[in-house]
Design a protein around this nucleic acid. Structure first.
Lengths: 223, 223
DNA sequence: CCTTCTCTATGCGCATTCTCGTCGTCGAAG
DNA sequence: CTTCGACGACGAGAATGCGCATAGAGAAGG
């Protein structure tokens, strides 16, 4: 779940990004409209949070251009003004929701949640499972064969990612991008290391988490 | 639990807001009807306390317009007049309760309590518990293993918040928002400090209040 | 003015995560 | 069938950064 935050006030941006990360989302930040559009254009975000007042390219125009390019990423507008007019303009431009500053973070989170859930049609599962392995995104509990397993943060994020793609191989590049937030392969073997630790904890008999040589890894649904 | 106070007399407003905060509520204040309506429109309050006599837009009209917009937030009217007529007008406009000035703060608090309890259908638990830790929101008594524990206000609010979410991790951002009423992260470590003090008083053997690295804290239900 | 409570600042300790190095395994080609 | 090359597995040590505790400053209340 990756979210783009387009916001010029660095304090607000920093606060929002941090909060989203603490809630388990990956978050990118663009300080102006142009950068935001470029990022939105090149990455497939699950949602965007866009300030209306932005340098270079305002939020409304940004979203209009995004929609013109047939991008349907759900957008939540942020604005200092609370006038009904502004709200209407935002929604007409293709925004999906509207929040006025100052706002409570929990409200922002709730709305983003709703947006993603609506967009993906299927309610955002809080509980992932594959075979006898289960993972709860909210309580952060992981079990194998009914027994609780204690995972470190990185291991947790990686397992969650694998579970989301259970049955299909995921490349190391993908993993680095979504779990480590790296855009480029920094010539490292971190993934191998954490996969190794994950196997020891979650797949001791080596039947669930398979290696696909030259590609990456698969989580086997059967077993 | 967030409450909006719409009241033009700044002394009364200040007094009420302070009292609510001390009782563990988050409270906002609007000095006139227009501001009040705008705030009520953009935020999801758990209850509102509205003076009938207000500049710009009187309390009755405010609530009428709120109800017209299908908002069901419970409203308690404040008024200087105690005439039965006024009371009827208020309730007809969509108010849920009515209190005449001057009033005792404890009475206001009791009624707000009742309003929220009624609105949320599930009676607002006055007593929270998790494992051998109990907390009473009304008497402000806290016990651990049957023995009373003396908490400072901040510590009390934080513990109450953790108890409400027992079993699920709560992020520091959330804590700052609900316990400190900060909308933005002021780059501080207050949360850590108060957690530390809370542990010393309520969880000396470090079994109940766990750290979730990079996220926040959990209160463990078992033990 | 004194007390009580809360916030800020700092350094330390430790958990987590990364890097490195070696060993093992797989697959292809001769 | 054997050999060679490349990729992956995994353990051990090192670095980073997060969280904890403490003390002192500041604010609020009596």
């Amino acid at each position: 779940m990756r979210i783009l935050v387009v916001e010029d006030d660095s304090k607000i941006a920093c606060f929002v990004v941090r909060g989203l990360k603490q809630s388990g989302y990956a978050a990118d930040h663009a300080p102006d409209g142009e950068t935001g559009l470029a990022l939105a254009d090149s990455t497939d975000y699950d949602a965007m949070i866009v300030d209306v007042m932005l340098p270079q390219l305002d939020g409304i125009s940004l979203v209009k251009r995004l929609r013109a390019a047939r991008r349907v990423t759900p957008v939540l507008f942020l604005s200092a003004k609370s006038s009904v007019d502004d709200r209407i303009r935002g929604l007409q431009a293709g925004g999906d929701d509207y929040l006025t500053k100052p706002f409570a973070f929990s409200e922002l989170l709730a709305r983003v949640h709703a947006l993603i859930r609506r967009a993906s049609q299927s309610p955002e599962a809080t509980r992932l499972a594959c075979g006898d392995v289960t993972l709860d995104l909210v309580t952060r509990e992981v079990t194998r064969a009914g027994k609780a397993v204690d995972l470190q943060p990185r291991e947790f994020t990686l397992l969650a990612f694998l579970l989301r793609h259970a049955g299909r191989p995921v490349s190391k590049t993908m993993i680095l991008e979504h779990v480590w937030d790296y855009s480029f392969d920094p010539q490292t073997n971190v993934v191998d290391v954490v996969i190794s630790r994950l196997r020891a904890k979650v797949d001791p008999d080596h039947t669930r988490l398979e290696t696909v040589r030259g590609v990456g890894y698969v989580l086997r649904p059967h077993v």
